[in-house]
Design a protein around this nucleic acid. Sequence first.
DNA 1: TCAGTAATGATAATAGTTATCATATAAATG
DNA 2: CATTTATATGATAACTATTATCATTACTGA
Lengths: 133, 133
Amino acid sequence: MKSDKLRITSQRDVILDELRAAKVHPTADELYEQVRRRLPRVSLATVYRNLEWLSEQGLARKIEVGGRQKRFDGDISDHYHVRCHKCGRVADVEMDLLDGVEDRIAQCCGFTVTGHRIEFTGLCPACSNGSAC
Amino acid sequence: MKSDKLRITSQRDVILDELRAAKVHPTADELYEQVRRRLPRVSLATVYRNLEWLSEQGLARKIEVGGRQKRFDGDISDHYHVRCHKCGRVADVEMDLLDGVEDRIAQCCGFTVTGHRIEFTGLCPACSNGSAC
DNA sequence: TCAGTAATGATAATAGTTATCATATAAATG
DNA sequence: CATTTATATGATAACTATTATCATTACTGA
């Protein structure tokens, strides 16, 4: 019989654990490097697959930011992000959500607006120190 | 002698013209299809190259939104965008800029914040009608 | 223990973009 | 207007990030 219980494999467990432990929001390959320290035989495909799965299950979040690579967040609460325009690093911003900002829109080409996302841009500590990232 | 004048080729002219004429913000390949109607021998590489060049010259803007493909905007003024979460279409939002919103940030992991970008999400007219995009 | 289902690792395939290079074209100069 | 020189173009290869495939492995429930 089919169970509706989430199947937590050791890979999933370590992936979520490392994602939650990350100070900034990692790309799949950054996380892969971390996970590999604990599970040396893990595959990059497993990391991609499970980041997707964790997002679907609501245990993690795929964050849509600019830049070529996707980034992931172990914190599922709604919040804003800041991205370094030099190295692409993404971190959390502590700021109250702008509730009702959707109501301020005068015109939006007929779109039905249901949410918003703010991405602050700037320089991360490493890049503003002039040191390599 | 080297001139500092911008070299406007027919390709660049048509690319910028079509970009400005677009109601929504096209991806490179969408724009390529449009440009091809006027310049049938144009190469996709030329479209990519010139969208990059136009952005560098300040004649167009590369808009950093979620989704796999980059999108471009012929309107270089600072404004917000709305993206259809179903088909990825991106359009302008008419809303006053949130001046000084960067000052409201309590904490941002040591980043030096210099700007922000808002991406509203929702459904475009075509997708909310249930029709195919 | 066993059967059935789902996850894994290795790798191929794909999508989007950028790089390469021989040829063509535009602007400056004579 | 012809020539020169730098730059842009078209065709295509290469590259990067991600997703799909598939044989094997490992859970889970009976």
